[in-house]
């Protein structure tokens, strides 16, 4: 299994080169690290390759060259199915919106990842109790969590359920892709507060992608995407 505690980095990217199928575009990331327990804000506009970078870190895409270590494991060396399992075991993901399966209850949504990860399931006593504890900590009433379909929740409530789903089973790496952009500014602050508290409790690293620089002061470190990565076009350099 992954030796999570020996490596100092939660995420370590070295000399990664990725080519999109067709060879029209490519992305180069020479070096990029997120330390354990560290919170990093990655600033970048859409189209700057951030989706690609996140997909690489999450193991959806495999690099053409280079090494991507997540929680001490070189995921580039894993097969596709193993990368999927690794993601299920070790990474919690929060999107901008549309995080939830609309037809399932919030509770079912939170518990779905356990279906794909034995490791997460093994890290907890009673999944249901822990899911309810999480949602209580995130300020969601239990009736909303167990009684209704996720599609009936407000956007803010859905985002909190998404946090609970990302955090269930205490993954060591949490990745958030513009999780606040669908919220109004008051709710944004409150939501970030909740995310930070959960990530700190779980002693996880947080990599958040956003284009909103106002969020910067809450993070340990702020990096611009163009500082660490460069887009390549066919025929270009």
């Amino acid at each position: 299994m992954a030796s999570e505690n020996t490596a100092p980095c939660a995420i370590a990217v070295r000399d990664v080169r990725f080519d999109w199928p067709g060879g029209q575009f490519g992305l180069d990331v020479p070096t990029f690290d997120v330390l354990q327990n560290e919170s990093v804000l990655l600033l970048g506009q859409s189209g700057s390759g951030k989706s690609t970078l996140l997909s690489l870190i999450c193991g959806i895409l495999a690099p053409s060259q280079g090494v991507i270590q997540v929680a001490g494991t070189d995921i580039g060396a894993l097969g596709r199915a193993s990368r999927d399992r690794f993601r299920a075991d070790h990474i919690g993901i929060i999107f901008q919106m549309f995080n939830l399966l609309p037809y399932a209850t919030a509770l079912d949504n939170i518990l779905v990842p356990l279906r794909f990860s034995k490791a997460r399931r093994a890290r907890m006593q009673s999944p249901r109790q822990e899911a309810l504890a999480l949602t209580k900590a995130l300020g969601l009433p239990e009736t909303l969590v167990t009684g209704v379909q996720a599609s009936t929740l407000s956007v803010g409530q859905q985002q909190r359920v998404a946090v609970a789903r990302a955090m269930i089973g205490n993954p060591k790496v949490v990745i958030a892709d513009e999780p606040t952009s669908a919220l109004d500014s008051d709710a944004q602050g409150e939501f970030l507060e909740l995310v930070f508290r959960q990530v700190q409790d779980a002693e996880a690293a947080l990599l958040m992608v956003s284009h909103d620089e106002r969020l910067a002061d809450r993070f340990d470190r702020v990096i611009r995407l163009d500082q660490i990565a460069s887009l390549r076009r066919a025929g270009g350099a």
Binding site: C58, A81, D84, R85, R87, A88, F98, N99, L101, F116
Partner: peptide
């Protein structure tokens, strides 16, 4: 979207 969510939480394409 549903399929993307499943992929994000660790489901393989075969799932």
């Amino acid at each position: 979207r549903e399929m993307a969510i499943l992929r994000a939480i660790g489901a393989g394409p075969m799932t």
